[in-house]
Design a protein around this nucleic acid. Structure first.
Length: 426
RNA sequence: GCCGCUAUCGUCUAGGGGACUAGGACGCCGGAUUCUCAGUCCGGAAACCGGGGUUCGAAUCCCCGUAGCGGUACCA
């Protein structure tokens, strides 16, 4: 049985468990709740503690943190604390650590890592009130649950010997361990909330696709020998080998994730794409959305970027004065009027028909296509950025397109009058 | 302090004694695609932490240093 251990020390256990289960679901792994209940765990912790106390492998010790410090000052920093057994009932329980020899963690990724026993304290395995501490509890749980493989973060490597010592005292075969390198933020520090999206949920909220995240995460600390970068989940499962994972911490670079995500987004069949967008937006994957997705798919790198591109199909044009001022220069009214005329006369309103109606205009008017298309874009979407202009018009439909052009033309006329009082004189 | 881990372009990595003039990807820069943005295509700049060994030969093996990270709790 495999155990995957979360590594975040700041969150509460309950939160961690919820997060892991949620993440596993998203990562499409199968998991079981585990055969041991909370009450069952507490009972086995108690039993294991008693066993160790009886055998002399553990003992009660009244020393406080200060006492330990003083002991070390006296015996040298390189030497782990060794306490004196007491019968005092409120004393904490410590495990006896041998003075000689070493404890070897045979890590799947790093190979054998040797820790001198002498450098470890007789560490506390249970508080004075009998409640167990992490390194003891986790070892007992692993034994109890028949865990054979443990995959967790590198930050656990140096307390693995403690768990091994507990397992040895319990005469239980230890699991195999794989300690994965940690992830750091762009500043080189351990990844945390202030780096932005640091958990799978946050990545999902930011509009990344599960398959893209899997691909990206697999590439952190691991690479293929034939330089393959893009891999679907099936291929990942086939090729990934935990023993091939690198040893150094990696920096989480969202730019590459964005790029990868864009690749996955563009390769999605339209129905799946629409479903993903619908799920993200909390909308129905209806025909309107499907049509909108069809013209936006090429352009969005994340699910978050889709709505700004297709919003004009569902709502009035956004009000963006900068975009207006930038494109609605002198003569824009005439251009829009020409476009309106051509579109009104078009025999149909599919993409090809719209293009056929508009594309002769720039030549006829003697200007670059952009001079015509940008004002149209702003008139119908409100923004200087949108899907292709023919696609956008066609998707909007003839009636609404003409209405929006008309509205823009009226506004331009109003502005001309306001700026030039002489118009009023006529 | 002590114990441990790690070190190839800005970033993720390939490469594990000669195939290295060190490969790929993201990002960046330049060009192309004469509707924006994005995309796509082409081109470019960009790295073996330092010092000693071992060897005919070192990015690759060993040692030392340096730096980063982790652990060192009656936290998980």
């Amino acid at each position: 049985m495999l155990r995957i251990e979360d590594t975040d020390r700041e969150r509460s256990t309950a939160e961690n468990v919820a997060q892991i289960l949620d993440a596993m679901d998203w990562l499409e792994l199968d998991y079981d709740e585990g055969p041991v209940s909370q009450a069952g765990r507490a009972a086995s912790h108690e039993a294991a503690l008693e066993k160790l106390l009886d055998s002399g492998a553990a003992y009660r010790d009244a020393a406080t943190a200060k006492d330990v410090e003083a002991w070390k000052a006296e015996h040298g920093a390189g030497r782990g604390y060794r306490g004196t057994p007491t019968e005092e009932p409120g004393a904490a329980v410590r495990l006896r650590v041998p003075d000689g020899g070493e404890t070897v963690v045979d890590d799947l990724i790093r190979g054998p890592v040797r820790f001198p026993n002498r450098s470890y304290d007789d560490f506390v395995i249970a508080r004075g009130d009998g409640t167990p501490l992490y390194n003891f509890a986790v070892a007992v749980d692993d034994a109890e649950m028949g865990i054979t493989e443990v995959v967790r973060g590198d930050d656990h490597l140096s307390n693995t010997p403690k768990q091994l010592l507990v397992l040895a005292a319990l005469a239980h075969e230890p699991p195999r361990y794989a300690h994965l390198p940690l992830l750091h933020g762009p500043d080189g520090k351990k990844l945390s909330k202030r780096h932005g999206a640091a958990s799978v949920q946050e990545l999902r909220e930011a509009g990344y696709l599960p398959a893209a995240v899997r691909n990206y995460l697999a590439l952190l600390g691991w690479g293929t020998d034939d330089d393959t970068t893009l891999m679907g989940t099936d291929e990942l499962v086939r090729r990934f080998e935990v023993g091939d994972v690198g040893k150094a911490a990696a920096i989480f670079d969202e730019k590459k994730l964005r790029w990868l995500n864009g690749r996955f987004m563009r390769e999605l069949p339209l129905d799946e794409y629409t479903a993903a967008v619908a799920g993200h937006l909390g909308r129905e994957p209806d025909e309107a959305l499907r049509a909108a997705c069809a013209i936006a798919q090429e352009k969005a790198q994340t699910l978050n970027e889709v709505w700004p591109l297709i919003r004009f199909l569902f709502e009035p044009p956004v009000e963006d004065e900068k975009a207006w001022a930038k494109t609605m220069k002198e003569g824009a009214g005439k251009l829009l009027a020409a476009a309106r005329g051509a579109l009104a006369a078009a025999p149909a309103f599919d993409v090809a028909a719209v293009e056929a109606a508009l594309s002769p205009l720039p030549d006829r008017l003697g200007l670059k296509p952009g001079k015509l298309y940008q004002p149209i874009r702003v008139a119908i979407t409100g923004s200087t950025v949108s899907p292709g202009i023919f696609e956008s018009l066609s998707a909007l439909g003839r009636e609404e397109s003409l209405n929006r052009l008309e509205a823009a033309i009226s506004r331009l006329e109003g502005e001309i009058q306001a700026n030039d009082p002489s118009v009023l004189d006529n």
